[in-house]
């Protein structure tokens, strides 16, 4: 089977967007840093913006590494760089949610009354809250725009690292919105407002982060391919398994994922002659056949086990009852 040809245009577009994201985020971090003062909410939002750099940088580094040819020290190439970046980004996203939640709970528990004073600007005394609102309003725009553009690309490329980046952007603009509510709340004398808003939003972010963390950990330890946005086995993998099962009855079929690519081992059958084309084996449309990176045949049978039950029709009805590893 020849090397898979991935959609270059979508990949290049995703890389351009990540560079734009880094550029925009530098300006956001600078503006937020200037006006944050002693506000804990603003400091948290600022730290979160800093963590927002992790997914695009991880994606760009992984994309660069993936293109390197295999070497003596890395004989299987660098396709797993994407998976490693996915794991790092998932940790960053979960950390953002956890940071936000801990900060909100501590603010509420200690009944901290945040001080937002004034500063002299062009000869006028201006309440710092207005500048914070302007900064937070500006900080909303880049993640909202870039996150919206990243999502369809993540689906086209089936790239979980890119999807986590889109989720991080969502987390950033949601936190920005909570920050605006918080500063207005502080201004109105409701010291608890920003902590409550941030606490509610942190639960959503932790949920996204936890799902990404489970999927990325599964990928790193050769778990079956996971869906883009949840840690369940992906529909593509199920369809592929069913197709191969029909074509090679009695064989044991193992699948794993390295970044965007799926690798398959078919145990218990001889390799067919001629070897079928990738498009012939991939059941989910020719446009995405590049995802099937490798199919290995070995005539030594492998005992059918609980992994196989995962893909049996009965199991599809109740997938949580017999998961592998339980």
């Amino acid at each position: 089977m020849s090397a898979p040809r991935q959609p270059d245009e979508a990949m290049n577009r995703a890389m351009r967007l990540c560079w734009w994201q880094i550029g925009w985020f530098v300006t956001v971090v600078a503006v937020m840093g200037v006006v944050m003062g002693q506000s804990q909410t603003m400091k948290t939002a600022w730290i979160e913006d800093m963590l927002g750099f992790v997914p695009p940088i991880a994606f760009l580094v992984a994309a660069r590494m993936e293109r390197r040819p295999r070497s003596a020290r890395f004989p299987f190439g660098f396709a797993r760089a994407n998976g490693l970046g996915f794991f790092v980004s998932a940790v960053a996203l979960t950390a953002v949610g956890a940071l936000l939640l801990v900060n909100a709970l501590m603010t509420l528990a200690m009944a901290e009354h945040a001080t937002v004073g004034s500063m002299r600007l062009f000869g006028h005394d201006v309440w710092l809250g207005w500048l914070m609102l302007a900064a937070q309003g500006y900080a909303l725009i880049p993640p909202l725009v870039i996150g919206t553009k990243l999502l369809p690309l993540a689906r086209t490329l089936n790239d979980k690292l890119l999807h986590t980046n889109a989720m991080m952007n969502k987390a950033n603009w949601l936190t920005g919105a909570a920050g605006i509510a918080g500063v207005v709340g502080l201004g109105l004398g409701w010291w608890w407002a920003d902590a409550v808003a941030a606490g509610l939003i942190s639960i959503d972010i932790i949920n996204d982060g936890w799902k990404a963390l489970r999927s990325s950990a599964a990928e790193l330890i050769d778990g079956a391919p996971r869906a883009l946005d949840k840690p369940e086995v992906s529909p593509d993998a199920r369809t592929l398994h069913a197709t191969l099962d029909g074509r090679f009855p009695g064989a044991t079929i193992l699948m794993r994922e390295t970044g965007r690519l799926i690798h398959v081992e078919i145990h218990g059958v001889d390799a067919p002659d001629p070897v079928p084309a990738r498009e012939e084996l991939w059941p989910c449309g020719g446009d995405s056949a590049w995802r099937l990176a490798q199919v290995t045949f070995t005539d030594r049978p492998l005992e059918r086990d609980r992994y196989q039950e995962l893909f049996s029709p009965g199991e599809r009805q109740a997938p949580r009852q017999h998961r592998p590893g339980r």
Binding site: A114, T115, S118, R120, D125, G129
Partner: peptide
Amino acid sequence: MKNGENRWIMQVEQTSR
């Protein structure tokens, strides 16, 4: 001033300047 009393803090800040 007491933390969080932002209107009072702002007034004292303005007058101090």
